[in-house]
Design a protein around this nucleic acid. Structure first.
Length: 376
RNA sequence: GGGGGGAUUCCAGAGCGGUCAAAUGGGGCAGACUGUAAAUCUGUUGGCUAAGCCUUCGGAGGUUCGAAUCCUCCUCCCCCCA
């Protein structure tokens, strides 16, 4: 993987760059749609590529390990070939499941034992095992196994957890560097900064991660319920320490405004379930604000879903029709909404990139942000 | 013509003398969702000058301290027999 910075914003720390992988290039800043189980829910790959213009998508170690399982993935020749997606893939390590499935796992120094949400069976995830699984999945970018701490988090716990995450990181790196990819393309391992909302821990972690000298770095443990100001404060603090010549990935973020604000702080990569999950629940993100398409006010609104939208569904279908699909529980509803939201997110980061190149990102961001969270 | 069953708040459907503005489901309305246990979850759904009051359980009377619940008549619906 290579990363080159192509432009730097005049008024902020935002930058535009290019990540090169064996499955193609990625223009940053980028939003990566989440496809946990080997599918971006409700989306065809063709639309993902041609309409949404996704350049890289996510998969998840925990979910793919449980289903379809390593044997199937290896026989298929890795996730790219299994799911018929030729562009870059990034896999999360299961570190988020340490947080989201906290009630069905046991955490020890050695690793984490998860009780499957599918059949209740128990599986031990060690840093080494997680590297092996991600070798079998074969994503271009793979993530270190970490503990994503909850919010709020006691200082002492956050500190203890950080020690564990760092020790796991060493084991991940050591094991990753000792092994090779299975399918002939390169893989790269990103470490993850933790430290909850504590400045000293974040600084310590960012330094530790920077010293690992990997090709890209991630910031985790944010957007778990903390106030936005805390999230931005931690992000800025960490970005200033992580090497400038490596891509910075803010995990699990976020809302359109979170993304623009974080780009201004120097973040290059984002992923979040919000555009896909919320789409399935009837929430549309647009450049003018947020639409809850189930609301009665759209019942007789025959105007396009999003007159400024870049997806064909935006002009092709009316709000009244999309509302009808949701109210009637028709599966086309979530499909159309997902296509819209992802297209909007990808449009947003592309637009951000243009403004970074033009040097006026900060001003543009400042006019956009108040609009994005408005309720239509 | 004879016999039987039923009419409940938007719908279906509990309730069968006070704890009933009335279970439950559906529908409606609104909200939540941030490295996906999510096509999920939550709230709300008679009116008001609201911790109280008013009007509601097919219609009209009646019994009772008190009725959606008991009695009488009426209207309409369903089933069975001829």
């Amino acid at each position: 993987m290579e990363f080159t910075i192509q432009a730097q914003d005049a008024g902020s720390k935002a930058r535009a760059g290019l990540i090169t992988t064996d499955h193609g290039t990625i223009e940053t800043p980028i939003f990566m749609p989440v496809g946990t189980a080997g599918t971006v829910k409700a989306m065809h790959h063709k639309d993902l590529e041609e309409t949404v213009k996704a350049q890289i998508i996510l998969g998840n170690t925990y979910h793919l390990y449980l289903r379809p399982g390593l044997e199937v993935l290896q026989q298929a020749g890795g996730l790219h070939r299994f799911m018929a997606w030729d562009k870059p893939i990034l896999t999360d390590s299961g570190g988020y499941q340490v947080y989201s499935l906290a009630h069905r796992r046991k955490l020890k120094e050695e690793g984490v034992t998860f009780q499957s949400h599918i059949d209740g069976s128990r599986h031990l995830f060690t840093p080494e095992k997680v590297m092996d699984i991600q070798r079998v999945i074969g994503a271009d970018i793979i993530m270190a196994f970490d503990e994503c701490t909850p919010y709020p988090c006691e200082y002492n716990y956050a500190k203890k957890s950080l020690v564990l995450t760092h020790s796991w990181l060493k084991r991940c790196i050591s094991h990753f560097d000792k092994t090779e990819g299975l399918y002939g393309h390169r893989q790269t391992l990103f470490p993850i900064v933790q430290g909850s909302t504590y400045k000293d821990l974040r600084v310590e972690s960012a330094k530790f991660i920077a010293d690992c000298g990997r090709e890209g770095n991630a910031i985790g443990g944010l957007s778990v319920g903390e106030p936005h100001e805390d999230m931005y404060e931690m992000t800025e603090l960490v970005c200033d320490i992580l090497p400038a010549d490596k891509p910075r990935y803010l995990m699990g973020v976020g809302t359109p405004e979170n993304i623009l604000e974080s780009i201004a702080l120097g973040v290059d990569m984002f992923d979040c379930v919000m555009p896909t999950r919320n789409a399935r629940n009837g929430m549309l993100f647009t450049s003018k604000g947020i639409i809850n398409i189930r609301n009665q006010k759209w019942k007789e609104d025959f105007s396009p879903i999003d007159p400024n939208g870049t997806a064909y569904v935006d002009q092709h279908y009316s709000r009244a029709y999309l509302r009808h699909l949701f109210v009637g529980n028709e599966m086309l509803g979530p499909m159309v909404a997902t296509m819209h939201n992802l297209s909007f997110y990808l449009w947003l980061v592309k637009e951000a990139r243009k403004h970074i190149e033009a040097g006026d990102f900060l001003q543009w961001k400042n006019t956009m942000v108040p609009r994005l969270s408005q309720r239509l």
